[in-house]
Computed example of a mutant assay.
Amino acid sequence: MEQFTNYVRPELLIVAIVLYFIGIALKQTQAVKDKYIPLILGGIGILICAVYLFATCTCHTKQDIAMEIFTAITQGILVAGLSTYVNQVVKQLHKED
């Protein structure tokens, strides 16, 4: 867990929690196969991070915009991975040996 938090921006950690609950909701609806849930969460994570990053940036050059896009993609993937990691930890803690 600490490995993720070293790389995820602190203000975006809340996105991992949001994605965790979205993942639970997708699992309960059974409208989506389990194997697609991490991909969906990754896409949503990238989208949410992009919205936040572009809302808070002062992009003046093409390089600034490219950096924000790169950051949104990497942070979105990391928070999606963190939400999946938390989901697996919760499952393993409730699992009986």
Rank of each mutant, 00 (worst) to 15 (best):
V79Y: 01
C49K: 02
T58E: 09
F4E: 02
L39C: 03
L12I: 01
K62L: 15
I44E: 04
R9K: 06
A66D: 15
T84D: 10
L13T: 07
A50V: 06
T84I: 10
L13I: 04
T5E: 12
Q63M: 12
V8R: 03
A50H: 10
E11W: 00
T61E: 06
Y20G: 04
K91C: 05
T56H: 13
K95Q: 15
I44Q: 03
L13E: 05
I69F: 12
T58L: 05
L93M: 09
V90T: 06
Q3V: 10
R9H: 03
C57Y: 06
L53T: 02
T84Y: 11
G43H: 14
L78K: 10
N6S: 14
Y7V: 08
I40W: 02
R9A: 06
L53G: 00
I73C: 13
Y7C: 03
H60P: 00
Y7N: 13
K27E: 07
V90N: 03
I46K: 05
Y20I: 04
T84F: 04
I65F: 10
I44M: 10
T74H: 05
C57H: 05
A50Y: 13
G43E: 10
P38I: 05
F54Y: 09
D64E: 12
L12H: 08
L12G: 01
T58H: 07
A31L: 14
Y85V: 02
L19E: 02
E68I: 13
A72G: 04
T74W: 03
I24K: 14
V79K: 04
